[in-house]
Design a protein around this nucleic acid. Sequence first.
DNA 1: TAGATATATCGAAATATGTCAATATATCCA
DNA 2: TGGATATATTGACATATTTCGATATATCTA
Lengths: 104, 104
Amino acid sequence: MNYEDLATKLKALADPVRLNILEFLRQPIESCCSQSDGVCACDFETLLGLSQPTVSHHMKLLVQAGLVRSEKRGRWVYYEIETATFAQISQYLTHFQQAALAAR
Amino acid sequence: MNYEDLATKLKALADPVRLNILEFLRQPIESCCSQSDGVCACDFETLLGLSQPTVSHHMKLLVQAGLVRSEKRGRWVYYEIETATFAQISQYLTHFQQAALAAR
DNA sequence: TAGATATATCGAAATATGTCAATATATCCA
DNA sequence: TGGATATATTGACATATTTCGATATATCTA
C-alpha cells in the first residue's frame, strides 16, 4: 500500500461524521435500525440529523476507501465494517509505536 | 478522546506529504539530515521538494495533532515521533478488527 | 400498474486545505 | 554589531470537501 492509497483510507476515516457512522456499524443500537436484518443508509439520517444525499455521500466514501462493505437487498443498502482494512491500517501504525522505534 | 479530537489526529495523518514526513522521522536517512543530532525542518525541503513555508505548515499540523514532538535547539527545530499518540490511535482501531467484532 | 420509499447523482454554495512568495523573527558566527 | 541562516507568519490562490435541494433510478406493495 503506497502513501496515496493509505492517505485515501485515512482521509475517509478522518471525519467526525464518518467516525460516528463507523462507531454505529461497530455497535448498532437495535432501536435505531429501521430494519431487523442490518444497518441501512436511512438509519443514519435520523441518527446524525443529516440529509439523505449527505449520508449517501459519506457512505460512498467509506465504501470506496474499503472501510465498509455494502450490500443491496431489496430497496435497502446494508453496510458492515470491513475488518481487513482496519487491520491493514493498524498494522501500519504499529511501526510508529514505542516498541518498533526502540528496536531500530 | 472524542470524535473531533480523533478526527484531528487522523486528518493530520491523512496526507501523502505528511505520511512521507512521518516515515522519514521513523527511519531517518543519515545522509539526508543536515544535522548530526536529529531531523530538522529544513531536511524536508530537499527531501520533499516543497517550499520552506509549506514544510513549516505541515510540521505545525503534525505537532498540533500530537503526532510529532518538536524541540528548538539553536537555530534548528528538531522533530520526533510521539509514539503515545500512535498507540492511542492504534488502540481505537483495534475495536474495528475481526476479533473485536466477533466478540460482540 | 401507480404511488410510495430507499438510494444515487447533479449542481451549487460555503468552508477547509495545500501551496507559494513575501516578509518577520530568532539565532548564530565572523 | 551585522550578515547569514533556520523557522514562522501573512496573504493570496487553486483545489478539495461538506452540505443541501432538486431530481433520477430502483424496488416494493396495494
